[in-house]
């Protein structure tokens, strides 16, 4: 079944500044017991080792989402990188990178980058179709 062009992907970045040491933040991400408490998965199997796997199921916006992935890089306490695949990535391996930085060891900047989110039905299509879509959008906001 043809899907959108594989080259058409999107990235996003979400950041937070958290009042905790990078070690504490890193532990929250990589210790399954802690991870459970804030990520709130309905199911979790987690092996946080390089090239090892995880399965995370979450309830989000009215339904269940299963995610599978592999840890690509685990460098305490500054970097965690893993693949991330679900229905919402249309079965493609996207990559999530969590970077932690801190100037004083007490407050940590968390920067989460999610790359490779594939084009979806909305974005799928050709240049001309998009031009029309844009014109329609412009019309709608009048």
């Amino acid at each position: 079944m043809p899907t959108g062009s594989p080259e058409a992907t999107f990235d996003l970045t979400v950041s937070r500044s958290i009042n905790a040491s990078p070690q504490a933040v890193f532990r929250a991400w990589t210790d399954p017991q802690q991870f459970r408490r804030w990520f709130e998965p309905t199911q979790l199997i987690m092996h946080p080792e390089k090239n090892d796997l995880y399965f995370i199921e979450v309830q989000w916006e009215g339904r269940s989402w299963a995610h599978y992935g592999r840890y690509l890089q685990i460098e305490a306490p500054r970097l965690l990188k893993f693949t991330w695949m679900s229905e919402a990535t249309e079965g493609r391996d996207t990559v999530v990178t969590v970077e932690l930085s801190s100037r004083d060891g007490k407050r940590t900047d968390v920067r989460l980058t999610h790359v490779g989110i594939p084009d979806n039905q909305l974005g799928r299509g050709h240049e001309e179709g998009w031009k029309q879509g844009l014109a329609n959008l412009a019309k709608t906001v009048e």
């Binding site: 999107f10 937070r16 999610h114």
Partner: peptide
């Protein structure tokens, strides 16, 4: 893009939880 919006909300929400 639907999935970008989905994940924007999702990750933002998870990081709020983490905080």
């Amino acid at each position: 893009n639907r999935w970008v919006a989905h994940y924007q909300r999702f990750w933002s929400d998870r990081l709020n939880n983490l905080e």
